[in-house]
Design a binder for these strands. Structure first.
Lengths: 228, 228
DNA sequence: CGATACGTTGATTGACTTCAACTAAGGTGG
DNA sequence: CCACCTTAGTTGAAGTCAATCAACGTATCG
């Protein structure tokens, strides 16, 4: 029974040497800045160097020979990139926003194992989503996941949370094993049900996070909501 | 472009201290023997102890609150159990055959990281399967995967490979995000197409492994096969 | 301005699910 | 040894959720 809790991106467990962000631009020296929709590394090429995402959103994806694409994971601030991709990358990594990367020469065992374990856990949860959840459940899950990774720890006066949804509808579709149209329709339904709000497609506000979590977990149908 | 290669279970990279199997029953002392359909550990309970599968097949699964079940991975000989399952297990582990386990007190970093990486790679490939493959492609992929993990390195006179398919149709369905009926229908179609053969539902022979691999990768439709 | 990409909405189709009936194999107890 | 039950597997018919096909609106950008 997934209990709903949102962790702001700033609260995520950053290793100590990254926390200097507030005081100064300590890692500005060797940090990598990438524009949206650029490739970090490519499926099939030599093993990628490891780096840590400081800011922005990166999509890990695999493609079948005929072009069908599956986004495996959405990687946000604090997480490692270039781990668990095999000898020759079995994944491509693409930025979905402006992204700041910090190359990490070598990670200590503790950090690496923790990061790998997080990859496994997320991949497992995603497999359950892809194998067993309905389209609205998938979209609700996605929104909550991305909110968790990308909310700014800003003014949290009300229980409404607003955040920037980096992936397009098409990218969400590739992540959730759906099509653009289905994703769009689910957003519309969630909006009409009063669970989320958006004026622009990428600025999303969670109006009823708990109800959203219920849907994501399969405990409630999208239609059984009393609009507030 | 997945090239088809089958690795017999015996050839898989076992750590040196397990290879004594041929010479004697060195690990017979503390080995754990479990009957089919028994639980190794349960979703939601305390962190499971780690062990290595010496023989048999274990299913890692997650369940949604309403009972929908997704099998995350099928674990065969040589692989570690109880890694990447989170603080409180987010997975259950169930035996699908007679299983021999060897408890491992602590694994060295090298082994653990390699095992975790394998978990990640397999989970990623499975996500692509669940998100983007058709039912026949999924079943073909599953058969090849299980063949790779469970073929006995026996008489390989011809290119036909015979192996014991431990999971039932229902368990395969839970693994592949399908229903029993769909899995059964796909088996029938593959059989009629001359790609596999089975008299009993769990003794399967691969007649045309390469064609099966083509289907699994989405390079060929199930119907475009010349029956030999 | 056209041109392109993204998003939304509607109509139709189709792949897989659901529901249902039936067969075969294994176990139990009279 | 056979009636009885249960479970797994197969097959057919009907139903449904999401995909496909199609049209349109809007924003961005040379």
């Amino acid at each position: 029974m997934l209990q709903f809790t949102l962790k702001a991106a700033g609260e995520r467990a950053l290793p100590p040497h990254l926390l200097s962000d507030k005081t100064g631009r300590r890692h500005g020296a060797n940090a990598l800045h990438l524009p949206p929709r650029s490739t970090v590394f490519l499926q099939g090429y030599g093993r990628a160097p490891q780096s840590r995402v400081l800011d922005g959103c990166v999509a890990l994806s695999q493609s079948l020979p005929d072009g069908r694409r599956q986004i495996i994971d959405m990687v946000g601030p604090g997480r490692l990139l270039g781990i668990g991709v095999g000898e020759h990358n079995r994944c491509s990594a693409d930025t979905l926003s402006y992204v700041t990367l910090e190359p990490v020469g070598e990670v200590d065992h503790r950090d690496l194992e923790q990061a790998l374990e997080e990859m496994v856990l997320r991949a497992q949860a995603h497999a359950t989503l892809l194998g067993r959840k309905t389209a609205p459940e998938r979209v609700a899950s996605a929104i909550l996941d991305l909110a968790g990774q990308f909310v700014r720890p800003s003014r949290s006066k009300r229980e409404t949370v607003c955040f920037n949804l980096h992936p397009t509808r098409g990218e969400l579709a590739d992540w959730l094993g759906l099509t653009v149209e289905t994703v769009s329709r689910c957003f519309t339904r969630l909006k009409r049900a009063g669970l989320i709000e958006f004026r622009h497609p990428e600025i999303v506000t969670l109006l009823q996070p708990q109800a959203l979590a219920d849907i994501a977990a399969g405990n409630r149908a999208i239609d059984n909501i009393n609009p507030v």
